[in-house]
Computed example of a mutant assay.
Amino acid sequence: MGKRPPFSTDIEAARYPPPPPPNFHASQTKLWFSWLVPLIFLANIAMFVYSMYLNDCPGYLNDDVCLFSQYLGRFSFQPFNENPLLGPSVRTLRVLGALEKDLVVGENEAWRFFSCMFLHAGVVHLLANMFSLLFIGVRLEKEFGFLRIGLLYLFSGFGGSLLSILHLRDSVAPNTISVGASGALFGLLGAMLSELLTNWTIYVNKCAALTSLLLIIGLNLAVGFLPHVDNSAHIGGFLAGFFLGFVILMRPQFGYVNRKYLPPGHDAKRKSKYKFYQYLFLILSVIILLLGYAYCLASLYLGKSDEMFSY
């Protein structure tokens, strides 16, 4: 009969069970440091202060007419009958880069599509937009980084400016201007909605997130129907941001594990980083964005040519 090897009794074997397989935990996504959105915030504040300095209400009007002139001096506000939002005059905003159809199309000042996003009609207008910027923009920049959010902000604002100037073209009031970061901010809201839809599988409380987001969007759009508010910029920015979100904010879905994160001796079923419907949304959104921007620009500048030939 064979002998057992030394030091291998059944009691000793039960005392030391085989080690369990190593557990794998996917690494958590690191958040970006938000610096671009605060920089945009400071740029808007600085531009408003400079616009009030350049406005110099007492230098053009009587001190008794300007609001709070005894405390603010040349930074005092225009009269309520001229600007109820506590801000500068239309003349000052036009000089600094407000959106106006005759200047953009007639004088070829296309830079006003972007400069108007950093101007505000008054303190009330500025505070409303800046609170929204910090509340929405900082969160998005932490998740997606400054490059994506910067592109989203600029192109959404450009979309809002395009639809706004088309609305100004058909306005019965002459020399109407448009200012504010509302188009870009509504673009961030639209991108949040499309990001929720294209990354639907990675959210836990899907219905709650969708309901709360739709409620916020509805309330903000309802503000656009107040007097002296350019809702066309809101709608244009929202639509541009909504389709840009499918392109810029697409994220890999759960189920994909990179091999370099797997422990030795383990394997995982490899799936595609992105799902088919994400690619479908991306392609459709790119087509819609290109057609939309091209149509608005053609309507704006080809309409100018038709007016020239009509004379």
Score class of each variant (00 low, 15 high):
residue 296 C to R: 06
residue 172 V to T: 11
residue 225 F to T: 12
residue 81 N to D: 14
residue 251 R to M: 15
residue 64 D to M: 08
residue 99 L to M: 01
residue 306 D to R: 11
residue 93 L to Q: 03
residue 214 L to A: 09
residue 2 G to Y: 08
residue 71 Y to V: 09
residue 179 V to A: 00
residue 221 L to S: 06
residue 220 N to E: 13
residue 232 S to R: 04
residue 286 V to P: 00
residue 166 L to V: 04
residue 3 K to G: 09
residue 224 G to Q: 07
residue 109 E to F: 04
residue 57 C to D: 07
residue 17 P to S: 05
residue 242 F to V: 07
residue 125 H to A: 11
residue 101 K to G: 08
residue 66 C to H: 06
residue 145 G to A: 08
residue 148 R to L: 12
residue 51 S to I: 02
residue 107 E to K: 15
residue 14 A to N: 11
residue 135 F to G: 03
residue 190 G to Q: 01
residue 31 L to D: 15
residue 133 L to V: 07
residue 113 F to R: 01
residue 13 A to V: 08
residue 295 Y to L: 10
residue 92 T to H: 02
residue 3 K to N: 10
residue 291 L to G: 13
residue 34 S to Y: 08
residue 186 F to N: 14
residue 130 M to I: 13
residue 211 T to V: 14
residue 59 G to E: 02
residue 308 M to P: 02
residue 30 K to V: 12
residue 214 L to P: 02
residue 27 S to H: 10
residue 59 G to I: 00
residue 69 S to C: 13
residue 258 N to Q: 10
residue 231 N to A: 10
residue 47 M to H: 05
residue 84 P to Y: 09
residue 294 A to S: 15
residue 210 L to Q: 02
residue 274 Y to V: 07
residue 113 F to I: 03
residue 178 S to V: 04
residue 115 S to N: 02
residue 7 F to T: 08
residue 267 D to K: 13
residue 208 A to R: 13
residue 156 S to F: 06
residue 82 E to R: 12
residue 203 Y to C: 00
residue 218 G to I: 01
residue 271 K to I: 09
residue 286 V to M: 14
residue 55 N to W: 02
residue 73 G to R: 04
residue 205 N to I: 00
residue 159 G to P: 00
residue 197 L to P: 00
residue 13 A to D: 15
residue 108 N to G: 01
residue 24 F to G: 01
residue 157 G to M: 02
residue 203 Y to R: 10
residue 157 G to D: 04
residue 39 L to Q: 08
residue 86 L to I: 04
residue 173 A to L: 15
residue 306 D to G: 04
residue 257 V to R: 07
residue 212 S to C: 11
residue 201 T to G: 05
residue 252 P to V: 02
residue 43 A to S: 12
residue 100 E to H: 06
residue 300 L to F: 00
residue 96 L to D: 01
residue 79 P to T: 03
residue 294 A to K: 11
residue 57 C to S: 02
residue 163 L to N: 09
residue 68 F to T: 01
residue 266 H to Y: 12
residue 288 I to C: 08
residue 196 L to K: 12
residue 273 K to Y: 08
residue 53 Y to C: 02
residue 164 S to Q: 03
residue 39 L to H: 01
residue 169 R to Y: 01
residue 169 R to Q: 13
residue 93 L to P: 06
residue 77 F to M: 03
residue 54 L to G: 13
residue 63 D to H: 15
residue 286 V to Y: 05
residue 198 T to R: 07
residue 63 D to C: 09
residue 182 S to E: 09
residue 207 C to Q: 12
residue 194 S to M: 09
residue 274 Y to C: 07
residue 207 C to W: 09
residue 294 A to H: 13
residue 24 F to I: 09
residue 303 G to E: 05
residue 152 L to N: 04
residue 187 G to Y: 05
residue 165 I to H: 06
residue 238 F to L: 15
residue 205 N to P: 02
residue 32 W to P: 00
residue 22 P to T: 10
residue 138 V to H: 04
residue 164 S to C: 15
residue 58 P to E: 05
residue 20 P to R: 11
residue 5 P to A: 13
residue 123 V to G: 01
residue 49 V to S: 07
residue 241 G to R: 00
residue 139 R to A: 11
residue 151 L to C: 14
residue 167 H to D: 14
residue 70 Q to C: 07
residue 176 T to N: 04
residue 242 F to P: 00
residue 283 I to Y: 13
residue 303 G to H: 00
residue 112 R to T: 01
residue 75 F to H: 14
residue 216 I to K: 09
residue 274 Y to T: 06
residue 223 V to C: 11
residue 36 L to I: 13
residue 68 F to I: 07
residue 200 W to M: 13
residue 235 I to Y: 01
residue 1 M to L: 12
residue 189 L to N: 05
residue 239 L to R: 00
residue 103 L to V: 14
